[in-house]
Amino acid sequence: MAGGGGASFAPHRFDRSDLAVAAVLLAICAVLYWDTTRWPAVPETLAQNAPPTTFPRLLIGSVAIMALMLPFERVMKERNGGSLLIGGQARARPIVFVTAAVITLAVYGLPILGALPVMIATSVLLPLLWGERRYLPILLFGVGLPIAVTLLFALGLKVNLGFGWAGALFR
């Protein structure tokens, strides 16, 4: 179409991150659909018109259709003079991954070490990792908060914290 609307009908390129997100979603849908094909067949009398695969497959289909539409959303918005600002354009900084690693270690260590040592370790490590260098507040925070939380949960809410190496304190 030529004429006045020329600018708005100029070809728009798909955003690479949208294509990547759509591809990831389609891959997830494919894996989930494949999983539904492995579920054992259910006799009709038991399924009562609602076989266990139907509802999940409907959802998977809906997500797949929406994933296919995803790259076009930005194009359509830009064509209409708008923009799709979803954030996250900048790369995640390394500190995110280091923080994720520390909290993963904390979760891994929870049943081994017990709640109190893990809380103390994270309360000291995370502030240091995030650039805090006031050592006295770190120490007070690193000891005070975990003890307060432990007392609240173990004594106040009667949560069993008697697991891991430090669990003996609570048994």
Binding site: I103, A106, V107, L110, A115, V118, M119, T122, S123, L126, P127, W130, F141, L145, P146, V149, F153, V159
Partner: peptide
């Protein structure tokens, strides 16, 4: 970090 401690426990 305090939020994490509360979330964890």
């Amino acid at each position: 970090p305090a939020v994490f401690v509360f979330a964890l426990i």
